[in-house]
Write a protein that binds this DNA or RNA. Structure first.
Lengths: 209, 209
DNA sequence: CTGAAAACTGTACCGCCGGTACAGGAGGGG
DNA sequence: CCCCTCCTGTACCGGCGGTACAGTTTTCAG
Protein backbone atom coordinates (compact mmCIF):
# COMPACT_ATOMS: atom_id res chain seq x y z
CA UNK A 1 0.00 0.00 0.00
CA UNK A 2 0.98 3.66 -0.02
CA UNK A 3 0.96 4.10 3.75
CA UNK A 4 3.61 1.43 4.14
CA UNK A 5 5.95 3.12 1.71
CA UNK A 6 5.54 6.37 3.54
CA UNK A 7 6.48 4.88 6.92
CA UNK A 8 9.38 3.05 5.33
CA UNK A 9 10.64 6.29 3.84
CA UNK A 10 10.33 8.04 7.18
CA UNK A 11 12.38 5.33 8.87
CA UNK A 12 15.02 5.58 6.14
CA UNK A 13 15.16 9.37 6.48
CA UNK A 14 15.74 9.20 10.21
CA UNK A 15 18.18 6.31 9.86
CA UNK A 16 20.23 8.04 7.17
CA UNK A 17 20.77 11.14 9.27
CA UNK A 18 21.65 9.08 12.32
CA UNK A 19 24.01 6.74 10.48
CA UNK A 20 25.89 9.61 8.86
CA UNK A 21 26.48 11.13 12.27
CA UNK A 22 27.23 8.03 14.31
CA UNK A 23 27.90 5.19 11.93
CA UNK A 24 25.90 2.00 11.71
CA UNK A 25 27.19 0.52 14.93
CA UNK A 26 26.48 3.71 16.80
CA UNK A 27 22.90 3.95 15.60
CA UNK A 28 20.44 1.95 17.68
CA UNK A 29 17.16 0.65 16.33
CA UNK A 30 15.44 1.76 19.53
CA UNK A 31 16.54 5.30 18.81
CA UNK A 32 15.17 5.12 15.28
CA UNK A 33 11.77 3.86 16.37
CA UNK A 34 11.62 6.52 19.08
CA UNK A 35 12.22 9.30 16.58
CA UNK A 36 9.88 7.92 13.91
CA UNK A 37 7.17 7.22 16.46
CA UNK A 38 6.84 3.60 15.44
CA UNK A 39 7.03 0.46 17.56
CA UNK A 40 9.80 -2.10 17.47
CA UNK A 41 7.52 -4.64 15.87
CA UNK A 42 6.59 -2.05 13.27
CA UNK A 43 10.23 -1.53 12.46
CA UNK A 44 10.94 -5.22 12.02
CA UNK A 45 7.88 -5.47 9.80
CA UNK A 46 9.65 -3.22 7.31
CA UNK A 47 13.21 -4.46 7.76
CA UNK A 48 14.16 -7.98 8.78
CA UNK A 49 17.32 -6.78 10.55
CA UNK A 50 19.90 -4.02 10.62
CA UNK A 51 21.69 -5.44 7.62
CA UNK A 52 18.58 -5.09 5.49
CA UNK A 53 18.10 -1.54 6.72
CA UNK A 54 21.67 -0.80 5.69
CA UNK A 55 21.03 -2.33 2.28
CA UNK A 56 17.92 -0.23 1.68
CA UNK A 57 19.67 2.86 3.01
CA UNK A 58 22.68 2.43 0.76
CA UNK A 59 20.64 1.68 -2.35
CA UNK A 60 18.47 4.70 -1.84
CA UNK A 61 21.49 6.90 -1.21
CA UNK A 62 23.27 5.72 -4.35
CA UNK A 63 20.16 6.19 -6.49
CA UNK A 64 19.73 9.72 -5.22
CA UNK A 65 23.42 10.44 -5.72
CA UNK A 66 23.27 9.26 -9.32
CA UNK A 67 20.17 11.35 -9.94
CA UNK A 68 21.90 14.49 -8.70
CA UNK A 69 24.91 13.94 -10.96
CA UNK A 70 22.60 13.19 -13.88
CA UNK A 71 20.79 16.47 -13.36
CA UNK A 72 23.87 18.61 -12.88
CA UNK A 73 25.88 17.33 -15.79
CA UNK A 74 22.97 17.13 -18.21
CA UNK A 75 22.10 20.72 -17.35
CA UNK A 76 25.73 21.66 -17.98
CA UNK A 77 25.59 19.76 -21.25
CA UNK A 78 22.57 21.74 -22.39
CA UNK A 79 24.33 25.03 -21.82
CA UNK A 80 27.37 24.25 -23.95
CA UNK A 81 28.21 21.76 -26.63
CA UNK A 82 31.90 21.57 -25.86
CA UNK A 83 32.67 18.54 -23.67
CA UNK A 84 35.41 20.30 -21.69
CA UNK A 85 33.38 23.44 -21.08
CA UNK A 86 30.34 21.43 -20.00
CA UNK A 87 32.44 19.32 -17.62
CA UNK A 88 34.03 22.41 -16.09
CA UNK A 89 30.59 24.00 -15.81
CA UNK A 90 29.27 20.83 -14.19
CA UNK A 91 32.00 20.99 -11.55
CA UNK A 92 31.13 24.63 -10.98
CA UNK A 93 27.45 23.81 -10.55
CA UNK A 94 28.36 20.94 -8.24
CA UNK A 95 30.50 23.16 -6.05
CA UNK A 96 27.69 25.71 -5.87
CA UNK A 97 25.21 23.05 -4.91
CA UNK A 98 27.58 21.81 -2.19
CA UNK A 99 28.24 25.26 -0.77
CA UNK A 100 24.50 25.91 -0.65
CA UNK A 101 23.96 23.05 1.79
CA UNK A 102 22.92 24.87 4.98
CA UNK A 103 24.81 22.66 7.46
CA UNK A 104 27.48 21.40 5.13
CA UNK A 105 27.50 17.97 3.51
CA UNK A 106 26.01 15.43 5.92
CA UNK A 107 28.45 12.73 4.82
CA UNK A 108 28.62 9.97 2.24
CA UNK A 109 27.06 6.61 2.98
CA UNK A 110 29.49 4.91 0.61
CA UNK A 111 32.34 6.03 2.84
CA UNK A 112 30.44 4.99 5.95
CA UNK A 113 29.91 1.50 4.56
CA UNK A 114 33.54 1.41 3.47
CA UNK A 115 34.70 2.00 7.02
CA UNK A 116 32.30 -0.67 8.24
CA UNK A 117 32.95 -3.43 5.76
CA UNK A 118 33.30 -6.35 8.12
CA UNK A 119 29.87 -5.87 9.64
CA UNK A 120 27.95 -6.39 6.42
CA UNK A 121 27.50 -9.24 4.00
CA UNK A 122 29.13 -9.57 0.59
CA UNK A 123 26.09 -8.18 -1.20
CA UNK A 124 26.26 -4.76 0.44
CA UNK A 125 29.99 -4.56 -0.16
CA UNK A 126 29.41 -5.40 -3.82
CA UNK A 127 26.75 -2.67 -4.03
CA UNK A 128 29.21 -0.20 -2.58
CA UNK A 129 31.94 -1.29 -4.96
CA UNK A 130 29.59 -0.92 -7.91
CA UNK A 131 28.64 2.58 -6.83
CA UNK A 132 32.28 3.65 -6.97
CA UNK A 133 32.75 1.90 -10.31
CA UNK A 134 29.69 3.75 -11.62
CA UNK A 135 31.34 7.04 -10.67
CA UNK A 136 34.47 5.93 -12.49
CA UNK A 137 32.45 5.11 -15.61
CA UNK A 138 30.42 8.33 -15.42
CA UNK A 139 33.36 10.70 -15.12
CA UNK A 140 35.48 8.50 -17.37
CA UNK A 141 32.92 8.78 -20.13
CA UNK A 142 32.96 12.57 -19.94
CA UNK A 143 36.74 12.72 -19.75
CA UNK A 144 37.13 10.48 -22.78
CA UNK A 145 34.91 12.82 -24.75
CA UNK A 146 37.10 15.69 -23.68
CA UNK A 147 40.28 13.87 -24.65
CA UNK A 148 38.98 13.30 -28.14
CA UNK A 149 39.01 17.06 -28.61
CA UNK A 150 41.67 18.28 -26.20
CA UNK A 151 44.98 16.43 -25.89
CA UNK A 152 46.03 16.47 -22.25
CA UNK A 153 49.09 18.49 -21.40
CA UNK A 154 50.45 15.56 -19.38
CA UNK A 155 49.87 11.88 -20.08
CA UNK A 156 47.14 10.65 -17.73
CA UNK A 157 45.12 7.48 -17.33
CA UNK A 158 41.45 8.30 -17.88
CA UNK A 159 40.15 5.98 -15.14
CA UNK A 160 42.62 7.37 -12.64
CA UNK A 161 41.59 10.89 -13.53
CA UNK A 162 37.94 9.90 -13.20
CA UNK A 163 38.71 8.41 -9.79
CA UNK A 164 40.29 11.71 -8.84
CA UNK A 165 36.83 13.30 -8.96
CA UNK A 166 35.51 10.71 -6.53
CA UNK A 167 38.61 11.01 -4.35
CA UNK A 168 38.35 14.75 -4.03
CA UNK A 169 34.65 14.52 -3.23
CA UNK A 170 35.06 11.80 -0.61
CA UNK A 171 38.15 13.41 0.86
CA UNK A 172 36.58 16.85 0.76
CA UNK A 173 33.62 15.56 2.74
CA UNK A 174 35.91 14.12 5.40
CA UNK A 175 37.85 17.39 5.63
CA UNK A 176 34.73 19.52 5.66
CA UNK A 177 33.08 17.47 8.38
CA UNK A 178 36.19 17.18 10.51
CA UNK A 179 37.11 20.84 10.27
CA UNK A 180 33.49 21.90 10.62
CA UNK A 181 34.16 24.16 7.65
CA UNK A 182 31.21 23.58 5.30
CA UNK A 183 32.87 25.47 2.46
CA UNK A 184 36.01 23.35 2.28
CA UNK A 185 34.25 20.70 0.22
CA UNK A 186 33.07 23.20 -2.39
CA UNK A 187 36.55 24.71 -2.53
CA UNK A 188 38.09 21.31 -3.13
CA UNK A 189 35.76 20.71 -6.06
CA UNK A 190 36.83 24.05 -7.54
CA UNK A 191 40.45 23.06 -6.96
CA UNK A 192 39.83 19.93 -8.95
CA UNK A 193 38.20 22.06 -11.61
CA UNK A 194 41.41 24.08 -11.83
CA UNK A 195 43.32 20.86 -12.34
CA UNK A 196 41.06 19.66 -15.15
CA UNK A 197 41.09 23.08 -16.78
CA UNK A 198 44.87 23.27 -16.68
CA UNK A 199 45.24 19.74 -17.95
CA UNK A 200 43.11 20.19 -21.07
CA UNK A 201 42.87 23.87 -21.90
CA UNK A 202 45.55 24.98 -24.39
CA UNK A 203 48.12 27.39 -22.99
CA UNK A 204 47.08 30.92 -23.93
CA UNK A 205 47.71 33.77 -21.56
CA UNK A 206 49.83 33.12 -18.51
CA UNK A 207 49.55 35.58 -15.64
CA UNK A 208 53.25 35.26 -14.77
CA UNK A 209 54.41 36.74 -11.49
CA UNK B 1 55.86 0.07 34.80
CA UNK B 2 57.11 -1.44 31.55
CA UNK B 3 54.86 -4.50 31.38
CA UNK B 4 51.81 -2.30 31.56
CA UNK B 5 52.87 -0.26 28.56
CA UNK B 6 53.38 -3.44 26.57
CA UNK B 7 49.88 -4.74 27.29
CA UNK B 8 48.43 -1.32 26.59
CA UNK B 9 50.17 -1.26 23.24
CA UNK B 10 48.91 -4.76 22.42
CA UNK B 11 45.34 -3.69 23.17
CA UNK B 12 45.76 -0.59 21.02
CA UNK B 13 47.16 -2.66 18.15
CA UNK B 14 44.25 -5.06 18.20
CA UNK B 15 41.75 -2.25 18.67
CA UNK B 16 43.16 -0.20 15.80
CA UNK B 17 42.85 -3.03 13.32
CA UNK B 18 39.35 -3.85 14.50
CA UNK B 19 38.14 -0.24 14.49
CA UNK B 20 39.45 0.38 10.98
CA UNK B 21 37.51 -2.63 9.75
CA UNK B 22 34.30 -2.27 11.70
CA UNK B 23 34.19 1.22 13.13
CA UNK B 24 34.04 2.06 16.82
CA UNK B 25 30.45 1.01 17.28
CA UNK B 26 31.09 -2.27 15.56
CA UNK B 27 34.07 -3.15 17.72
CA UNK B 28 33.19 -4.78 21.03
CA UNK B 29 35.41 -4.64 24.07
CA UNK B 30 34.75 -8.33 24.67
CA UNK B 31 36.21 -9.08 21.27
CA UNK B 32 39.30 -7.03 22.03
CA UNK B 33 39.97 -8.76 25.34
CA UNK B 34 39.44 -12.15 23.68
CA UNK B 35 42.05 -11.41 21.04
CA UNK B 36 44.59 -9.84 23.40
CA UNK B 37 44.10 -12.62 25.95
CA UNK B 38 43.31 -10.22 28.75
CA UNK B 39 40.33 -10.12 31.09
CA UNK B 40 37.64 -7.50 31.12
CA UNK B 41 38.91 -6.12 34.41
CA UNK B 42 42.36 -5.95 32.91
CA UNK B 43 41.05 -3.93 30.01
CA UNK B 44 39.26 -1.43 32.22
CA UNK B 45 42.42 -1.12 34.28
CA UNK B 46 44.08 0.43 31.23
CA UNK B 47 41.16 2.37 29.78
CA UNK B 48 38.31 3.80 31.81
CA UNK B 49 35.83 3.40 28.95
CA UNK B 50 35.52 3.15 25.19
CA UNK B 51 35.86 6.89 24.80
CA UNK B 52 39.27 6.83 26.43
CA UNK B 53 40.33 3.94 24.25
CA UNK B 54 39.29 5.97 21.22
CA UNK B 55 41.26 8.94 22.48
CA UNK B 56 44.43 6.91 22.98
CA UNK B 57 43.92 5.20 19.63
CA UNK B 58 43.48 8.45 17.76
CA UNK B 59 46.42 10.18 19.44
CA UNK B 60 48.72 7.28 18.70
CA UNK B 61 47.54 7.14 15.10
CA UNK B 62 48.07 10.84 14.52
CA UNK B 63 51.55 10.76 16.05
CA UNK B 64 52.55 7.88 13.85
CA UNK B 65 51.06 9.56 10.81
CA UNK B 66 53.03 12.74 11.48
CA UNK B 67 56.21 10.73 11.97
CA UNK B 68 55.80 9.06 8.59
CA UNK B 69 55.29 12.37 6.80
CA UNK B 70 58.28 13.83 8.65
CA UNK B 71 60.48 10.99 7.49
CA UNK B 72 59.34 10.98 3.89
CA UNK B 73 59.52 14.68 3.24
CA UNK B 74 62.75 15.24 5.13
CA UNK B 75 64.32 12.42 3.13
CA UNK B 76 63.04 14.07 -0.04
CA UNK B 77 64.45 17.36 1.18
CA UNK B 78 67.89 15.85 1.66
CA UNK B 79 67.97 14.60 -1.91
CA UNK B 80 67.26 17.94 -3.54
CA UNK B 81 67.41 21.53 -2.49
CA UNK B 82 64.67 22.74 -4.77
CA UNK B 83 61.38 22.99 -2.87
CA UNK B 84 59.25 21.91 -5.84
CA UNK B 85 61.45 18.96 -6.72
CA UNK B 86 61.59 17.77 -3.14
CA UNK B 87 57.82 18.04 -2.79
CA UNK B 88 57.27 16.09 -6.00
CA UNK B 89 59.82 13.52 -4.85
CA UNK B 90 58.05 13.31 -1.50
CA UNK B 91 54.76 12.53 -3.22
CA UNK B 92 56.53 9.89 -5.28
CA UNK B 93 58.03 8.31 -2.16
CA UNK B 94 54.65 8.46 -0.46
CA UNK B 95 52.95 6.71 -3.35
CA UNK B 96 55.63 4.03 -3.34
CA UNK B 97 55.22 3.51 0.38
CA UNK B 98 51.47 3.21 -0.08
CA UNK B 99 51.69 0.75 -2.95
CA UNK B 100 54.09 -1.38 -0.91
CA UNK B 101 51.46 -1.99 1.77
CA UNK B 102 50.76 -5.72 1.40
CA UNK B 103 46.99 -5.59 1.96
CA UNK B 104 46.42 -2.02 0.90
CA UNK B 105 45.93 0.88 3.29
CA UNK B 106 44.01 -0.30 6.36
CA UNK B 107 42.08 2.97 6.63
CA UNK B 108 42.46 6.32 8.33
CA UNK B 109 41.34 6.74 11.93
CA UNK B 110 40.74 10.44 11.36
CA UNK B 111 38.09 9.54 8.80
CA UNK B 112 36.64 6.91 11.10
CA UNK B 113 36.29 9.42 13.91
CA UNK B 114 34.87 11.94 11.43
CA UNK B 115 32.07 9.56 10.53
CA UNK B 116 31.45 8.88 14.20
CA UNK B 117 31.45 12.38 15.61
CA UNK B 118 28.33 12.23 17.72
CA UNK B 119 29.58 9.29 19.77
CA UNK B 120 32.60 11.07 21.17
CA UNK B 121 33.17 14.07 23.38
CA UNK B 122 34.35 17.48 22.25
CA UNK B 123 37.97 16.73 23.12
CA UNK B 124 38.34 13.91 20.64
CA UNK B 125 36.65 15.96 17.93
CA UNK B 126 39.06 18.80 18.64
CA UNK B 127 41.99 16.38 18.39
CA UNK B 128 40.71 15.22 15.05
CA UNK B 129 40.21 18.75 13.81
CA UNK B 130 43.74 19.68 14.87
CA UNK B 131 45.16 16.71 13.02
CA UNK B 132 43.62 17.92 9.77
CA UNK B 133 44.79 21.48 10.48
CA UNK B 134 48.29 20.12 11.05
CA UNK B 135 48.19 18.54 7.60
CA UNK B 136 47.07 21.85 6.18
CA UNK B 137 49.97 23.65 7.87
CA UNK B 138 52.49 20.99 6.87
CA UNK B 139 51.65 20.92 3.17
CA UNK B 140 50.91 24.64 3.18
CA UNK B 141 54.41 25.37 4.46
CA UNK B 142 55.97 23.35 1.66
CA UNK B 143 53.70 24.87 -0.97
CA UNK B 144 54.47 28.39 0.16
CA UNK B 145 58.17 27.66 -0.24
CA UNK B 146 57.47 26.45 -3.73
CA UNK B 147 55.44 29.53 -4.60
CA UNK B 148 58.28 31.79 -3.61
CA UNK B 149 60.29 30.28 -6.44
CA UNK B 150 57.68 29.09 -8.92
CA UNK B 151 54.70 31.29 -9.74
CA UNK B 152 51.66 29.07 -10.19
CA UNK B 153 50.21 28.85 -13.66
CA UNK B 154 46.73 29.43 -12.24
CA UNK B 155 45.84 31.52 -9.19
CA UNK B 156 45.33 29.16 -6.26
CA UNK B 157 44.80 29.52 -2.53
CA UNK B 158 47.67 27.83 -0.70
CA UNK B 159 45.54 26.38 2.09
CA UNK B 160 43.06 24.98 -0.38
CA UNK B 161 45.87 23.41 -2.36
CA UNK B 162 47.34 21.99 0.85
CA UNK B 163 43.92 20.57 1.72
CA UNK B 164 43.86 18.95 -1.71
CA UNK B 165 46.69 16.68 -0.57
CA UNK B 166 44.65 15.55 2.44
CA UNK B 167 41.52 15.22 0.33
CA UNK B 168 43.15 12.99 -2.25
CA UNK B 169 44.68 10.83 0.48
CA UNK B 170 41.45 10.45 2.43
CA UNK B 171 39.39 9.98 -0.70
CA UNK B 172 41.94 7.62 -2.19
CA UNK B 173 41.76 5.46 0.91
CA UNK B 174 37.97 5.25 0.65
CA UNK B 175 38.17 4.34 -3.04
CA UNK B 176 40.96 1.83 -2.53
CA UNK B 177 39.17 0.10 0.32
CA UNK B 178 35.78 0.09 -1.36
CA UNK B 179 37.09 -1.13 -4.71
CA UNK B 180 39.45 -3.58 -3.03
CA UNK B 181 42.08 -2.22 -5.38
CA UNK B 182 45.11 -1.53 -3.18
CA UNK B 183 46.90 0.37 -5.93
CA UNK B 184 44.22 2.99 -6.48
CA UNK B 185 45.42 5.04 -3.53
CA UNK B 186 49.00 5.17 -4.79
CA UNK B 187 47.75 6.12 -8.26
CA UNK B 188 45.70 8.95 -6.82
CA UNK B 189 48.76 10.35 -5.07
CA UNK B 190 50.64 10.27 -8.37
CA UNK B 191 47.69 11.98 -10.04
CA UNK B 192 47.94 14.72 -7.45
CA UNK B 193 51.67 14.89 -8.17
CA UNK B 194 50.87 15.50 -11.83
CA UNK B 195 48.61 18.36 -10.77
CA UNK B 196 51.28 20.00 -8.62
CA UNK B 197 53.90 19.49 -11.29
CA UNK B 198 51.71 21.05 -13.95
CA UNK B 199 50.73 23.92 -11.70
CA UNK B 200 54.25 25.02 -10.87
CA UNK B 201 56.63 23.70 -13.50
CA UNK B 202 57.21 26.25 -16.29
CA UNK B 203 55.86 25.24 -19.71
CA UNK B 204 58.66 23.74 -21.75
CA UNK B 205 57.97 20.93 -24.13
CA UNK B 206 54.39 19.94 -24.77
CA UNK B 207 53.82 16.43 -26.15
CA UNK B 208 50.91 17.68 -28.26
CA UNK B 209 48.78 15.00 -29.89
C1' DC C 1 65.32 -10.26 49.83
C1' DT C 2 61.47 -7.61 50.78
C1' DG C 3 57.71 -4.79 50.49
C1' DA C 4 54.87 -1.84 48.11
C1' DA C 5 53.00 -0.50 44.05
C1' DA C 6 51.55 -2.00 39.49
C1' DA C 7 49.18 -5.09 36.81
C1' DC C 8 46.25 -7.76 36.63
C1' DT C 9 42.13 -11.97 37.63
C1' DG C 10 37.41 -13.45 39.14
C1' DT C 11 32.80 -12.80 40.15
C1' DA C 12 28.67 -10.72 40.32
C1' DC C 13 25.70 -7.51 38.71
C1' DC C 14 23.05 -3.63 35.93
C1' DG C 15 20.63 -1.72 32.03
C1' DC C 16 20.51 -1.12 27.06
C1' DC C 17 20.18 -3.12 22.71
C1' DG C 18 19.46 -6.30 18.68
C1' DG C 19 16.63 -9.73 17.62
C1' DT C 20 12.78 -13.39 17.97
C1' DA C 21 8.17 -14.99 18.61
C1' DC C 22 3.65 -14.53 18.38
C1' DA C 23 -1.02 -12.88 19.13
C1' DG C 24 -3.96 -9.50 17.92
C1' DG C 25 -6.05 -5.23 15.95
C1' DA C 26 -7.17 -1.18 12.71
C1' DG C 27 -8.41 0.03 8.25
C1' DG C 28 -9.02 -0.01 3.47
C1' DG C 29 -9.99 -2.44 -1.19
C1' DG C 30 -12.10 -6.13 -3.80
C1' DC D 1 -17.79 -9.25 4.33
C1' DC D 2 -13.28 -10.74 4.36
C1' DC D 3 -8.64 -10.56 3.48
C1' DC D 4 -4.41 -8.32 3.24
C1' DT D 5 -1.40 -4.70 4.55
C1' DC D 6 0.32 -2.38 8.27
C1' DC D 7 1.00 -2.09 12.19
C1' DT D 8 0.73 -2.54 18.18
C1' DG D 9 1.74 -5.03 22.59
C1' DT D 10 4.01 -8.18 25.33
C1' DA D 11 7.31 -11.17 26.68
C1' DC D 12 11.59 -12.93 26.30
C1' DC D 13 16.76 -14.04 25.03
C1' DG D 14 21.67 -13.28 24.87
C1' DG D 15 25.43 -10.05 24.07
C1' DC D 16 27.62 -5.97 25.34
C1' DG D 17 29.29 -1.71 27.86
C1' DG D 18 30.12 -0.56 32.18
C1' DT D 19 30.52 -0.78 37.51
C1' DA D 20 32.09 -2.54 41.81
C1' DC D 21 35.17 -4.64 44.42
C1' DA D 22 37.90 -8.20 46.54
C1' DG D 23 41.75 -10.84 45.78
C1' DT D 24 46.15 -12.35 43.39
C1' DT D 25 50.38 -12.22 40.84
C1' DT D 26 54.24 -9.67 38.87
C1' DT D 27 57.66 -6.26 38.91
C1' DC D 28 60.98 -3.37 40.45
C1' DA D 29 63.21 -0.10 43.71
C1' DG D 30 65.60 0.08 47.88
Amino acid sequence: MRKGEETRTRILDVAEAAVLQKGFGGTSIEELIAETGITKSGFFYHFRDKNELAKALLNRYIENDERIYDEIFSRARELTGDPLQSFLLGLKLLSELLSDLPNGHPGCLVATVCYYERLFDREIQETNRNAVLAWRRRFGRMLREIMEVYPPREPVDVDQLADMVSSVLEGGIVLSKTLKEPNTLAEQVLMLRTFVKMLFLPVAEMPRA
